[in-house]
Design a binder for these strands. Sequence first.
RNA 1: GGGCCCGUAGCCGAGCUUGGAUAAGGCACCGGCCUCCGGAGCCGGAGAACAUGGGUUCGAGUCCCAUCGGGCCCGCCA
Length: 643
Amino acid sequence: MSNPLSQLRAECRRLLEEALKGLYPDIELPEDRLSRPPTIEMGELSSSLCLQLGPRIGLNPIDLAKRVAKEINAASKRLVASAEEKNGYINFQADIRNFSKLVLEAATGDEEYGFLKTDSPERVMVEHTSANPIRPLHIGTARNSVLGDALARIQRKRGHSVEVHFYVDDMGRQVATATYGWRLLGKPEPSGRADEWFGEIYAIVNVLKEVKRLKRELEEAKERGDDERVWRINRELDKYASAANELRERSPLFDELNERMKSEPDPEVGIMKLNTEYERGVPEAKRDVRRLVEYCVRGFEEVLGELDIRFDFWDYEGDLVWSGAVEEAIEALRRTPYTSYEDGALILDCEAVARALGLKERWGINPSYEIPRLVLMRADGTTLYTPRDIAYSIQKFNRVDRVINVIGCDQSLAQLQLRIALAAMGRLELADRQIHYAYEFVRLPEVKMSGRLGRYVTLRELLERAVSLAYEEVSKRSPNLTEDEMRNIARRVGHGAVKYTLLSLDPMKVVVFDWNKALNFEMNSAPFIQYSHARACNILKRAPSRPEPDYSLLKDARERELVLLIAQFPEVFLEACESLRPSEISSYANILADRFNAFYAALPVIKAEPPGLAGARLMLVDSVRIVLRNALSVLGIEAPERM
RNA sequence: GGGCCCGUAGCCGAGCUUGGAUAAGGCACCGGCCUCCGGAGCCGGAGAACAUGGGUUCGAGUCCCAUCGGGCCCGCCA
């Protein structure tokens, strides 16, 4: 397992130290992360050490740098060829032969090049997606899935033992609403995609129910002559009426549900009753709700499976309640000094916990911020979402050492309260080892996406469009492929494009969804990187032989740039892993593909003369191939050899 | 009202964790490139008071404070 750039770094560092200590024996050397100079012509690595040290020892930084460079050039070196002062920096030029040999042999000698293994493997859990079952997966939840999947893959490649969990939210009113509607219809088998079919039922019932409620409130407001309220309710009503129209047009279930709900006295009450029965474990409620949820969950499994995103466990919230785990957690909290009863409900004073245990300081929370209290149990004894999640967290740590929860940033407070509850129970160490990996939402250009109103671009729709677009391209560009091959490549390219688009953005930035951007197959996209990979494969396939490489001939700036980039990959992987940022890898892969294309256009490989140069360039191409493939694979994106 | 996050060319966006040289790319726009390994490509051009105002520093897109604009949260919802 090699990290060639770290070897170059170590040598530069040693040369710097020796030179400085030789000149100024008493000098103290600060940390200096050698960085890359602006252009490769200036060298492979550079140090700004003299800029820092110069003023400290009363010397012009440029003079100091010049002296140090001179010392370094006189010393004996292996990977470094020379050092040069420029603007107070010391720029190191790598020894082309030794460094290229080291890098290219490391990359081509290891199919797993770049995936540096940890010395201390841990058990890591990634919980991701965990979308509400009655809402089909859409482009917003896809961001969660793709990020979670990439994080899990990265941790796994790092050598941790990773398990991926989906938390199935079967307890909510939303699921009860869908089940209520399904029962009204006489519980027919779903037609078509189960998750989308139930999603429609949910949206329809919800919208009809809200319309009914608003109409009633409107009458009351009119009677009271509350004009402002009448106006507000009318506005709300408009919103639901237009959503109802959209649903009526889209779904054949609308009219039937509308008809049946008319004879229902109060759907709200029916839904609440079902919800309570489910929590208590009443057999009929359990049977119907579970069946519906399992249909939906299988739908999720299928779409995500298409994207090669898989889960090791599907954890049902209901099971936590029925097993007594939730009750146990609440009971443990009740025995702490931080809870009290208010109107019969059990309350956790989060602010008191934070103060008593110094949590604000520990977790960098603004000291003047007063953390809102958390209701642990309703007056009627039924449970709530966050307390159930507390019980879930405790269970998680029975299995693993570290937890990454990929959950929308709207859950930040709930996730904080959860960790505070863990701390209150004396499990501070668990709270510290649980990360809320937050991400922002994907918005549609005009309206906000809303499952409640049935407004979303489903993930399936997105994937289908991406794949069909990719198919068009493939059939145009590679008409000699068989139908099967074209379909297969279109799938990998289309899915790659969607994943890359979601991964390459900063998770904390709000995304406005745009078909053109999501289906961009040009620069800075998965297809662009995949295409570069296919080109590399093609050269290797066409090369009649592999001449003995003469690495000293890789003198062109484009070649040096590629060698350096390849050397960098292990560090990029490590950084992406430690900082939990898959976009490090996607942007790196894009740059590597970009530079490879420049190299490809300018310099011949197979026909390069002399043969030693052809051999060295073939090693370079093979290294690029391996690194591009590995970078994509750790993001969950495939790299076809042809496209 | 309080808290968290975001604000970089017409548009999209990297860089901010760990301050350092000329602020990367892409789209759109303009001009070139298939006698040579795949044009989903390459080369060149034009386009930026890094939201605003202070501060720290030899040095700030990056750190600190304030202001403005946008998103999210502050439920006995999930």
